[in-house]
Design a protein around this nucleic acid. Sequence first.
RNA 1: GUCCAGAGAUGCAGUAUG
Length: 350
Amino acid sequence: VYTLTTLINCFCRLHKLDFGFSVLGKMLKLGLEPNTVTFTTLINGLCIEGKVAPAVRLLDEMVETGYKPDVITYSTIVNGLCKIGNTNVAIKLLKKMEERGFEANVVVYSTIIDGLCKDKVVTHALELFSEMKSKGILPDRFTYSSLIQGLCNLGQWKEATRMLNEMIAMNITPNVFTFNILVDAFSKEGLVSKAQDVVQMMIQRGEQPDIITYSSLMDGYCLQSQMDEAKNVFNLMVLKGFAHDVFSYNIMINGYCKCRRIDEAMRLFDDMSQIGLVPNSITYTTLLGGLFQVGRVQAAKELFKEMRAFGQLPNMMTYSTMLDGFCNNGHLNEALELLQAMQDNGLDPD
RNA sequence: GUCCAGAGAUGCAGUAUG
């Protein structure tokens, strides 16, 4: 049962939920009793696909057939609810869980706190934060990281700093996640030198920056149109032994596109394939926007074709970019054609 | 015996509105 549950978990993470359920079928056929962990794993698989309603149904079936969920089962669904933006329902489920005699733990609380922070209702998150502490549940790195991120996104730097100090005082050492949140927040706010300070601080504290740290920093420079600085970070990453990924390329490509330096962006795009990275729909959408911005309508049309030829499906953002590009360049008829084509492909304009 | 099957935090793209 342990082995097969592990297998189910693997399938879930590979987005092969059907296979996961087949394994459950096999288990039953072999006369093996699935247990709470097996069901929780499948429930998580459903949540990963955003199928939270079926996940809840599975929980109900589980209870009806006599299998006992536990706190992890509940928190799995709580997480699913939060990820699809139903934080309020998640809170209700937390209460229900407690009514049924399960004790909340730091994971459920942190999950909800994170959801509230992402919804930008940090005051509510802080209320839950006090609530958990009053129940004697100690916050951990996850809890503090979510709160720090929420506060930063609202520009409440003082409060964010206070949180950081509080966590250190509580002997919960910030890790690479925590620092990366700060680097990203400062970068997005245009305070790249502050972001640099955080990188220095983390190195001093013995926490090694990773590819996300440097990518965030790069993005900060790009947003300030400081492409030389961004390029320096890009090169520094290689020197430090990091292999660039699609994200780091996309960030640089976006930087060049926004500065109307489309040729340099295209060069990076070519480099990507050279080193075996597969450009994704974000890469293409970024470049399409860049091409239209400098009036290269024909090149954009060709790239749009190429993207589909390489199996990258245009999404809503890609179409918006195309439509906007056509309109701004006086190709209204092509915009209308594309709008039609998009609907024919089953994508409803938003 | 908080290692030994399951839950939580970090980086990239568009339009309109503001």
